[in-house]
């Protein structure tokens, strides 16, 4: 069974409560596993593969070797430098994680059914009401599990909960049709305007993304929901964070998304995910990259504000380098 193809089950890698960064108010963000892009700078590398993945958190390991005895695939080896996971053998069955007394071994990606997930996120309904917050479906790319995501959002809308869809835009149009009617807010990523660079850094060009962006904007003009769209642009050194790129995104917004977009977030590069790559046994191109300076972020914000959009809607977010 591939969880992504059903309306009853989804693969979720994290449920983040009291999230304050993914839309208005206090929110619970549900991170769907599996992404259609593969951005070189991705902050959540565990979100990319649609399959459950094993990771090892070294400082939780008590060295008891229980995992080695339960692994049926002989995929684990505890060496002096830590746990070595043979990812060609590991099937992500989770037996070792179940057995691990220290929870050093964890499976990223759990299967949730619709009722359980709905009940789980409704636990914070009181805070959604006091904060005008709600639920954000994020990822990965939630539209890859659109049937489930649509049903989930629908169930929440029926209870009067504010919903937000956080999407990279790289998905089938039918998938959007399943989630848009139940999303009050769309957080749409615009990373790079140059299709060649887009392909270089994310694995895909941006043709489909821009088409979908037009589609969502048209959809919003003719429907009550979604009623709001925020654009999010990651500021990545040597990739997205150039005056040309920011200016081009701003021109696109100004030209095509007037009266649709109410906020444009410039999300400063962040290096805290370095260890996530290590734990997944992956190399990361930005491993040695420092945070951006405040001056540089301000420069990008100026580029955005002078690109033809309402300057008030440009909001830089994230940390900057300590100076």
């Amino acid at each position: 069974m591939t969880p992504s193809s059903t309306a009853e089950f989804a693969t979720i890698f994290e449920i983040m409560r009291m999230s304050t960064e993914d839309g208005p108010g206090i929110r619970t963000t549900v991170f769907f596993k599996g992404c259609s892009l593969h951005c070189a700078w991705c902050h959540n590398p565990e979100s990319i593969s649609p399959n459950p993945q094993l990771q090892w958190v070294g400082n939780r390991c008590i060295g008891c070797r229980t995992c080695l005895s339960v692994c049926r695939e002989n995929a684990l080896a505890l060496t002096e430098s830590g746990m070595e996971i043979d990812r060609t053998r590991c099937t992500g069955c989770g037996d070792c994680a179940d057995a691990c007394p220290g929870t050093a071994l964890e499976i990223m990606g759990k299967t949730w059914d619709l009722d359980d997930l709905t009940a789980e996120v409704l636990k914070d309904q009181a805070y959604f009401e006091t904060s005008k917050g709600g639920i954000t479906v994020s990822g990965g790319e939630p539209a890859l599990q659109s049937e489930f995501a649509g049903q989930f959002l629908k169930a929440l809308r029926q209870r009067g909960i504010h919903t937000a869809l956080d999407t990279c835009g790289c998905c089938r149009r039918e998938a959007l049709d399943q989630v848009l009617p139940y999303s009050a807010l769309v957080l749409f990523d615009m990373k790079l305007m140059d299709p060649v660079l887009h392909k270089k850094f994310t694995g895909h060009d941006n043709r489909r993304i821009l088409e979908n962006l037009h589609y969502v904007a048209d959809y919003m003009r003719s429907h009550v929901h979604p009623s709001e769209m925020w654009i999010r642009t990651p500021l990545i050194p040597r990739a997205t964070a150039t005056r040309e790129n920011i200016g081009a995104i701003g021109q696109f917004i100004g030209a095509h998304l007037r009266n649709v977009v109410s906020r444009w977030e410039l999300c400063a590069f962040n290096n805290l995910c370095r260890d996530k790559y290590l734990r997944l046994g992956q190399r990361w191109e930005f491993e040695k990259e420092e945070l951006l300076t405040l001056d540089f972020v301000d420069e990008m914000a100026d580029a955005a504000k002078s690109s033809g959009v309402d300057p008030d809607m440009v909001v830089p977010t994230g940390s900057t380098r300590l100076e």
Partner: peptide, 16 residues
Amino acid sequence: RITGYNAYFTSVGREL
């Protein structure tokens, strides 16, 4: 917790 990213403090490396 920073935009789009979250982690338990104790599970990020010492330097960070």
